[in-house]
């Protein structure tokens, strides 16, 4: 029941966000849009509540969302900017030393691994290629392999993604 309510409310908010400027209710919406949106989000919530909320309320904690926004604005955006300067440097000079390495980030949930893989792709010099689903190990294509990092296997996370696993553990686990 509670998963149905959460899904319906999120659907309704999304519908309202996408239909602003349609009328004069609160200056933004028309009554018809609100009615249709309510009916559609009730139907959608009824059909998809089992897919959207999976029997645990881990992500209902607002602290996790505050951490998530802090993570997006702080370390994530900084390393995205660094990544672009890095790629610009490599595009102009053509200095590359590629290789595929394995890391073991010790995250357990699907959401956490997805977030880490996406963050790794968008941060300096690294691109996630494959995942071992039984052990949650990631295979990373590294554009400029550091010889020091190869001495220990699997490669230490700090060379690839800094302290991202710590942040993601706080957000998603």
């Amino acid at each position: 029941m509670i998963s149905f309510i959460i899904t319906t409310i999120i659907c309704f908010i999304t519908y309202l966000l996408l239909t602003t400027g349609s009328g004069s209710f609160l200056g933004l919406w028309s009554i018809e849009e609100i009615l249709i949106g309510l009916i559609l989000s009730l139907i959608t919530g009824f059909i998809t509540h089992g897919l959207f909320v999976k029997n645990n309320m881990r992500m209902a904690n607002p602290m996790r969302w505050i951490y998530f926004i802090g993570y997006l604005i702080g370390p994530f955006f900084v390393s995205l900017a660094k990544a672009n300067i890095d790629v610009a440097y490599r595009v102009i000079t053509g200095k590359i030393k590629p290789g595929i390495v394995k890391i073991k980030p010790d995250l357990k949930t699907d959401l956490g691994i997805t977030m880490l893989a996406n963050s790794i792709t968008l941060t300096p010099g690294t691109l996630s290629v494959d995942i071992d689903e039984t052990t949650n190990e990631l295979y990373i294509h590294w554009i400029n392999v550091d010889e020091d990092a190869l001495k220990k296997k699997p490669v230490d996370c700090k060379y690839i993604c800094g302290n991202f696993p710590k942040w993601i553990r706080r957000i998603a686990e």
Partner: peptide
């Protein structure tokens, strides 16, 4: 090759 091209194609277009 394809991997290094993906580096350019994802980071720079997103930013």
């Amino acid at each position: 090759d394809v991997y290094t091209r993906l580096h350019a194609g994802t980071k720079c277009t997103t930013f």
